[in-house]
Amino acid sequence: MPQDPTQRDLTAAELQGARNRLTLSPELVRRVAVLGGYDAHDAFSDKLTDVVDVTDLIELLVTAQLGETEPGRTAARQVESERARRILERIATGQTLTRQSVHDNLPSETVVLFRMGPPRLWGYAVRQRTPRNAGNALPARVPADPTGTWASPEEAWLGWHITDASDLDELATVVPGVLHDNDLNRRLRLGMSLSDGPDQVWSSARGHWSIKPETTYIVPSRYGWCPYVFRIPDGGWRGDEFEGHRTRYMAERGYWIDVDNGRLVEMGEPDPDNSWLPRMSVSDEAPTETDMAVAGLLTDRVLRLGAAGKNPVIRLRQRGRRLF
């Protein structure tokens, strides 16, 4: 089978992933829900705001095992597996934080968590990984994608359901017909993997979001795990208009707060020679006391975010206002 997916047909494994009709027995779902803390709540009257989402737990359990058993596993897959096991251990032993406990211990600054989805290729990167007959897998009605006019519904669907989003260094960053001086085209992937470093997380998580441009700290999270905290300086957000949506914001500038080394790392311009990941450099500016307080509380911590909802943006704290 050719290595270039555009030169081959869709596999049955890829179609299984796209159609995703898998179901679990009620017994297994109940056991997973107990692990997530659901058994401490009344079935009908309690708000499930401090549990771990059942689907998140199932994906963590599968990820932890797959990284050890699947053939041809890569170093990145092994890192995913190890981190999934570590997250599960913390959940099982109660080494987690609730949203209210985080709120009560954060300084009075606007801190927003992004509930990141799985890795997915975006835009012109999708075309470089799409099997030649993948269009046969498209549903009769393809829903519109939140990226609006920047990706067709079909292309966005294939990026989400079909194409593999690993090994980005194999993809071209500069291709004919794509305006690469436009910041919206200067990344290859959305979503978040447990194996991602701060550069890839920043590239995927910096936008677009329906937030207030006064947001100072962003916390990308996968399954409630928060590996990195970023500070957005004044004027660091850019607003873009999307048809049928209110203005959404993308961070053009930011700093990773490196708690372990007590420093700020500037997330610079996207680099076309490095999968459009940011050029990173240690800032001459030292982190503030507030920077260290926010990042020290959240970096590498697991939060119980509650049962998943439609809004991926969760305010952990807001300047001048209590949320709990």
Rank of each mutant, 00 (worst) to 15 (best):
G177H: 09
G309L: 00
F230K: 04
P2N: 11
T163V: 09
N274T: 10
R319K: 09
I162P: 04
E252H: 15
D9Q: 05
M280A: 12
L10A: 05
G224R: 08
S193Q: 08
V52A: 14
V201Y: 03
V51N: 05
L97R: 03
S25R: 10
D271C: 12
Q3M: 07
R85L: 11
D42I: 01
A12H: 10
D183R: 03
S101Y: 00
P107K: 09
Y249T: 04
G191T: 04
G239F: 12
W209M: 02
D46Y: 04
L264S: 02
R99P: 06
N20T: 02
S203D: 01
F242L: 11
V79I: 15
A92V: 11
G224L: 08
P278S: 04
T69Q: 15
A140W: 11
T216E: 00
E214D: 11
E109N: 03
I218P: 13
I211F: 14
V142A: 06
R322Y: 07
T63C: 14
N105T: 00
V112W: 00
R129A: 14
T74A: 07
T130H: 03
D167Y: 00
D300E: 13
E269P: 03
R141G: 04
N133M: 06
R90S: 13
F324T: 05
T216K: 09
R83E: 01
P139M: 06
T110Y: 08
P270E: 11
P139D: 03
F242A: 06
Q95C: 02
D39A: 08
A308L: 14
G244Q: 04
L303Q: 01
L188F: 12
W157L: 03
S275H: 13
Q100Y: 05
T216L: 02
A18K: 07
S210V: 02
L48T: 06
V51R: 09
N105I: 00
L24C: 03
A13L: 01
L97E: 06
I211A: 03
V259D: 00
K212T: 15
T98F: 07
M1W: 00
N133I: 02
K310D: 00
I314Y: 03
D4V: 05
E89D: 15
L10C: 10
R253I: 06
E68F: 08
Y223H: 13
S275T: 14
S204K: 05
E241Q: 11
P287Y: 07
I58W: 07
R83V: 02
L28M: 12
V52S: 10
S283H: 08
W122H: 12
L121I: 05
E59N: 06
T55N: 02
N261P: 01
R222I: 04
E285L: 10
A75C: 07
S45E: 12
G207Q: 10
A125V: 01
L316E: 02
F114E: 03
V32M: 04
R315F: 04
Y38W: 14
G268C: 12
I232W: 10
T290P: 02
G94H: 11
M292W: 13
F230R: 06
P233W: 05
W157K: 10
L188E: 01
Q3A: 05
G177L: 14
P139F: 09
V102P: 01
E154D: 11
R90L: 12
D9P: 00
E27C: 01
R321K: 13
L48M: 14
